[in-house]
Simulated scan of single mutants.
Amino acid sequence: MTAVPPNPPPYHPGSEQPSLNRPVRERYPQIRATSGYGDPRVDRTGPGPGAGTEQDPERSARLSARLVIAMTVVIGQLWALTVGVNEWMRGHTDTAWWCAGFLGLSFLVVLGLWYSDPKDR
C-alpha cells in the first residue's frame, strides 16, 4: 500500500501533471487505460438507432391510458381506505362497509383492465 501525500493536488481530467493522469490499476484492475475504443472485449458499439422506442403508437396510447386509470383507482383506494378506517374507529360501521365495498369494486376494475388485452401481459 502506498502512502498518500498529506495534501494531494486536486484532480481534474486532462491535468497537466502526468502523475494525476495515471490509470488506477490498484483500485480497479479490470479497467485498462484504453478501456472502450481499444479494448478487444468491445466488439459492438451499442444497440443501434431507434432502440428502446415504441414502434406501435396505438399500443403505447393504450398502455398509457390503462396506467392512468389504474393509478387513479389506486389513489381512490387509498382515499377509501382512509375514510373507512376513520369511520370504523368512530363506530360508524355502515360507512366503513360501503368503503370496503368500494375497495373491492375498484380492485375488480383494475383486474378487468388487466384482462382486457391479453397480448400485453
Rank of each mutant, 00 (worst) to 15 (best):
M1V: 09
T2S: 06
A3C: 03
V4P: 00
V4N: 04
V4K: 12
P5W: 04
P6C: 10
P10F: 07
H12W: 03
H12I: 03
P13C: 04
P13F: 06
P13V: 02
G14F: 05
G14N: 06
G14S: 05
S15C: 09
S15A: 09
S15W: 07
S15I: 11
E16A: 10
Q17Y: 11
P18K: 11
P18M: 12
L20Q: 05
N21Q: 12
P23W: 03
P23F: 02
V24F: 04
V24D: 03
R25D: 00
R25W: 01
R27P: 00
R27Q: 07
R27T: 01
Y28H: 08
Q30W: 13
R32H: 07
R32P: 00
T34Q: 12
T34L: 11
S35R: 15
Y37E: 00
G38C: 03
D39H: 14
P40G: 04
R41S: 11
R41G: 09
V42N: 04
D43V: 15
D43M: 12
R44G: 02
T45R: 15
T45A: 13
G46M: 08
P47R: 13
G50L: 08
A51S: 10
G52V: 04
G52M: 01
T53V: 07
E54F: 01
Q55N: 02
D56S: 07
D56V: 11
P57D: 04
S60A: 06
A61Y: 02
R62S: 01
L63Q: 02
L63T: 01
L63D: 00
A65S: 05
A65W: 01
R66K: 06
R66T: 01
R66W: 01
L67H: 04
V68N: 01
I69D: 03
A70K: 08
T72K: 11
V73K: 10
V74A: 13
V74L: 12
V74P: 00
I75S: 12
I75T: 14
G76E: 10
G76Q: 09
Q77W: 03
L78G: 10
A80P: 02
A80M: 14
A80G: 08
L81H: 05
L81V: 00
L81C: 05
T82F: 15
V83S: 11
V85F: 11
V85N: 10
E87L: 15
E87K: 15
E87V: 15
E87T: 15
W88R: 15
W88Y: 14
M89I: 03
M89C: 07
M89D: 02
G91N: 12
G91K: 15
H92R: 15
H92K: 14
T95E: 10
T95Q: 13
A96F: 09
A96V: 05
W97K: 15
W97A: 14
W98Q: 13
W98M: 14
A100G: 11
A100E: 06
A100W: 08
G101C: 11
F102S: 11
L103M: 14
G104L: 15
L105Y: 10
L105E: 02
L105M: 12
L108Y: 12
V109S: 09
V110D: 05
L111M: 13
G112K: 10
L113N: 05
L113A: 05
W114E: 07
Y115K: 13
S116W: 08
D117F: 08
P118N: 04
P118R: 13
K119H: 03
